[in-house]
């Protein structure tokens, strides 16, 4: 009976998290179009509903009812499988993210490692999609993505090692607790180097501009999902946005203090203590997502050799240096 109760609680949590995240994914597209539109002095979506607020619904309905085209010479089982792998890898990382104090689907000790594992699996969806489409554009997109993910995963993992060293745990809950009791209240200041490396590699890992070489519109049409249409295309898009949300929440949890507020801010403004933790979490999350859009609107796309050089020659040495400094500091203090 107790087991049944626990299982039903977990199921309820999963339903809540998935529906809330899908809602946020839908509105992240709206937010992106609005923000980038304003940055380019356009207006963004405005026609569907007041202020275009129903645009994501219209997009969803459209992609759901579009014809599902499958190329003739594609490898059909793999073609069907690829978007599912993509969305599954993105979604399962949600299981270990604590959205506020005590709300987590599965509080495992290897939270960070699990997220890293799942984000590296996302590459399979992309590579297999590129290979199975039997099209040159998709193929090149998949190839680029494979190389990019292998390169940037290293620096992504290494940039988080400093946080793990300071907190002494892989568990995301413990990391947030450790941050709130640390000197600065969050790790972005002592881990400034790691934070920088994390931001750059997270953008590259989720294939977002300016590192969106696998789906470069101007050279590869749409890259790995050039041959996809309708619902499968929507799955790829959703996977990309969920990946963004995961990376942003990882940044929030590991560097920006999660759902907590630094103690000195609370000391200065005591009334902020009444704001629930989930509000802080979502505010920080949206700040990170806004940053994604901001650099997308600002920076031009990197060239491929520049991308590889940045990853291997700048980010990995920087993250190793960060680990060294953090280790020495930890040893001294």
């Amino acid at each position: 009976m107790e087991l049944l109760w626990e299982i039903s609680i977990i199921v309820i949590k999963i339903v809540v998290v998935v529906s809330v995240v899908m809602f946020h994914v839908a509105y992240a597209t709206y937010f992106e179009r609005k923000v980038i539109g304003r940055m380019q002095m356009r207006m963004g979506p405005k026609e569907v509903g007041p202020l275009g607020i129903l645009q994501p619904v219209a997009d969803g309905i459209k992609s759901f009812f579009k014809e599902d085209i499958i190329p003739l010479n594609s490898d059909k089982p793999v073609f069907y499988l690829a978007p599912v792998i993509s969305i599954m890898a993105a979604m399962s990382a949600l299981a270990v993210i604590p959205f506020f104090d005590g709300f987590i689907i599965s509080n495992i000790n290897l939270g960070i490692l699990f997220i890293l594992a799942m984000s590296s699996l996302g590459a399979y969806g992309i590579v297999l999609a590129g290979w199975a489409s039997n099209s040159k554009y998709a193929f090149l997109g998949g190839l680029r993505s494979a190389a990019q993910v292998i390169s940037y995963e290293v620096s992504l993992g290494l940039s988080l090692v400093g946080v793990m060293l300071l907190a002494g745990s892989f568990n995301l809950n413990d990391i947030v607790e450790a941050q709130s009791s640390s000197v600065f209240g969050f790790y972005a200041i002592p881990q400034i180097l790691g934070f920088f490396v994390f931001i750059v590699s997270a953008v590259a890992e989720t294939n977002r501009p300016p590192f969106d070489l696998p789906e470069a519109e101007s050279e590869l049409v749409a890259g790995y999902f050039a041959e996809y249409s309708g619902f499968r295309f929507a799955l790829f898009m959703a996977a990309e946005y969920i990946g963004m949300i995961i990376m942003s929440s990882l940044a929030v949890l590991c560097f920006l203090g999660g759902w907590t507020v630094p103690y000195y801010v609370l000391y200065l403004f005591p009334f902020l203590g009444a704001v629930p933790g989930v509000v802080w979490f979502i505010l920080k999350l949206y700040a990170c997502i806004f940053f994604y859009y901001w650099i997308r609107a600002t920076l031009p796309r990197f060239r491929y050799d520049q991308l590889m050089a940045l990853g291997w020659k700048l980010l990995i040495p920087l993250s190793l240096l960060n680990i060294l400094i953090t280790g020495i500091a930890k040893l001294i203090i």
């Binding site: 002095m41 207006m43 901001w294 920076l299």
Partner: peptide, 21 residues
């Protein structure tokens, strides 16, 4: 240079859009 670019885009975000509907 990147910071300068980012500042520019942030500034244009609060300008009036030039779109005619």
């Amino acid at each position: 240079e990147i910071v300068r670019g980012m500042r520019l885009t942030l500034k244009t975000m609060f300008k009036k859009p030039v779109t005619r509907r």
